[in-house]
Amino acid sequence: MSHAAVQISGVRFTYPDGREALCGADLRVEHGQRVALLGPNGAGKTTLALQLNGIHRPDAGDVEIGGLPVTDPNLAEVRRRVGMVFQDADDQLFMPTVREDVAFGPANLGLRGDELASRVTKALEGVGAAELADRAPHHLSGGERRRVALATVLAMRPDVLVLDEPTSGLDPAGRRELIGVLQGLPITQLAITHDLPFALELCERAVIVDGGRVVADGATADLLADEELLHAHRLELPFGLDPRTVPPSRPR
């Protein structure tokens, strides 16, 4: 395959209130790669992610998913290919029960009956949340909500998984389980995160976004070892962590 899983070229985007959030962002992600999207608050990471499934459209530049340009006629297919887990799980879970919420996406894809039910069950089992199926999303704990939010997206069998700060608000065990789930998924993954050890463990590659641009790109361990670079973009390793002594995430 010559096309990339994700291809972003020269994307500019300005919010309606005049705030220019992206000013010429470029990023190419290969099939099956796991990439961490790092950067300070307000860098434009979330805005960039929202370009990937056409929620926001670039004012200039192009976005392609698996060779398919993100344009109106392709929107439905693009949204099937790109699974997006939002920063706030309460935005993601809007149906009265977990089961209906997970079913929402595949039902929109046209699945019905037993096929739909088995999709839902498998997605929930995949994140270890099968027993939550009949609960109401707003009665779940933060960590449970995150897992269910991930299941709602996995139920659509996306080619590209985009996660916006997936580890925020998780306890250490929940974070560990999430890493396990994500490591077991053989799909392209783009994880926006402030959790650098998480990035180091899950992603072989990392990019730093700042001021609406991709300003650094490389092996995660190399980027994180560059203290000056990290400091310049308001990033900081947790006390005592040395990325050079951690076995690197294996590229596949």
Binding site: I55, R79, F86, D91, N108
Partner: peptide
């Protein structure tokens, strides 16, 4: 934001009937 999340999962204006 909820609307964006719905669009991301293929919402096209009508709620799918799930329980039949």
């Amino acid at each position: 934001r909820v609307h964006a999340a719905m669009l991301s999962r293929g919402y096209s204006g009508a709620m799918p009937t799930i329980d039949e």
